[in-house]
């Protein structure tokens, strides 16, 4: 089943806006965000570099989803999918290790990680997959439409 184009369009807008907002909120206090990353206990160096680059990546990918044309927009959807997969893996890791920490998904104070956080991230992955898979109709890689026979009479 192919979702209607307005639905794909709205999903793309939602993903783009969400990434931009999340990135800007994290940019407010990069050191606090670095602490949030370190709390996941996944990166030996504490994630300071990741804290510096991740918010800007989110803003760039989110903006690309909203404004770039065709093939670049699909690439942005792919990048967003990669980001969401990475975030979900980190959240799932903390959740199943039962580490009681803030998500850090929207900067500081986003609330502790729970099953809902995991479900939300899985929903974002699903949205990104839909955009990546079905947004191509308006892109540069769009398959040529078969010629519509003229109907007369």
């Amino acid at each position: 089943m192919i979702p209607a184009r307005p639905i794909v369009f709205l999903l793309r807008l939602a993903l783009g806006a969400l990434l931009i907002v999340a990135g800007l909120l994290k940019l407010r206090d990069p050191t606090a965000f670095a602490t949030e990353i370190a709390n996941y206990q996944l990166l030996p160096g504490g994630g300071a570099v990741l804290a510096a680059i991740l918010p800007a990546i989110e803003v760039v990918v989110g903006t690309s989803l909203l404004v770039l044309p065709g093939a670049w927009r699909r690439a942005a959807a792919g990048a967003a999918l990669a980001l969401f997969v990475m975030f979900t893996a980190a959240v799932a890791s903390a959740y199943f290790r039962r580490i009681n920490i803030d998500c850090g998904c929207f900067g500081t104070g986003g609330g502790p990680i729970g099953a809902l956080t995991l479900l939300r991230n899985l929903a974002l992955i699903a949205m990104a997959v839909v955009v990546l898979r079905f947004d191509r109709a308006s892109g540069a890689n769009a398959a040529p439409r078969p010629a519509t026979p003229a109907v007369s009479g």
């Binding site: 760039v60 990918v61 690309s64 670049w72 690439a75």
Partner: peptide
């Protein structure tokens, strides 16, 4: 490639 370019530009 394009996705990596976007991620690299963001980084």
């Amino acid at each position: 490639t394009r996705a990596l370019c976007l991620l690299g530009a963001g980084a």
